[in-house]
């Protein structure tokens, strides 16, 4: 390992231990790491946005390609900064309105496609009892239907409707349990990765 690598990895080790130190109690090392990540992440995303959005979407079209249509959204963007003035902060509603209008308009058909139609297509598969695959398709379709019935609160959950809703709750509980298990496993994987990093670094540093 070169000196640079030793120093950079040493810094990463120090910050990792600083974050883990919160498990004991709140302390200055944790606070240093916490405040550092706020500044670094804000600076990182600002620069990424500058190079990946401002340069190709504003600077190049307006200055190099003379696409003056892009001046209009740029002016709208600048108007966002009127929020700093009490007198003129209402002007910032114009860019916010453009942002929300376009964003919501795009979101309506895309959400319909991604969250409703695609899951519906995937659920409407051949069903039956002759093979495990067909039976599983039947279980998925029944599970989706039951869980949707549970979400239907306009009718009281009693009688047969309540029974179907109850199966819906069981289905949802399996989903939540699986989600919990997968989340825990993901976090544990990250923890193992951090410990592996520390072990490897110390092994390389001290050669044991």
């Amino acid at each position: 390992m070169g000196t640079g690598e030793i120093l950079w990895n040493g810094l990463a080790l120090f910050l990792t231990l600083s974050i883990f130190s919160i498990l004991y109690k709140d302390n200055p090392f944790y606070k240093i790491a916490e405040h550092l990540v706020v500044g670094v992440s804000a600076g990182y995303f600002a620069i990424i946005l500058y190079y990946n959005s401002f340069i190709p979407k504003v600077w190049v079209p307006v200055v190099h390609e003379s696409k003056f249509l892009y001046i209009l959204p740029t002016i709208l963007g600048v108007l966002m900064w009127t929020r700093f003035s009490r007198k003129w902060s209402w002007v910032s509603r114009y860019p916010i309105a453009a942002y929300m209008g376009i964003g919501m308009g795009v979101a309506i058909p895309v959400t319909m496609q991604a969250y409703i139609l695609v899951p519906l297509y995937a659920t409407m598969q051949p069903i039956g009892f002759t093979s495990m695959a067909l039976f599983n398709n039947l279980l998925v379709a029944a599970g989706v239907l039951c869980a949707l019935v549970y979400f239907f609160f306009s009718k009281e959950h009693t009688g047969a409707f309540g029974g179907v809703a109850k199966v819906g709750i069981w289905t949802l509980m399996v989903g939540f349990g699986a989600g919990f298990g997968l989340t825990v496993m993901g976090r544990v994987s990250l923890l193992i990765e951090r410990f592996t990093f520390m072990r490897d670094y110390l092994q390389k540093l001290f050669g044991f």
Partner: peptide, 20 residues
């Protein structure tokens, strides 16, 4: 792949309807 998938699809549909 079966009950979890069913739950996730039902939740996705709920999110979709709510979002729209």
């Amino acid at each position: 792949t079966v009950p979890n998938m069913a739950a996730k699809r039902a939740i996705a549909m709920g999110i979709g309807l709510g979002g729209i």
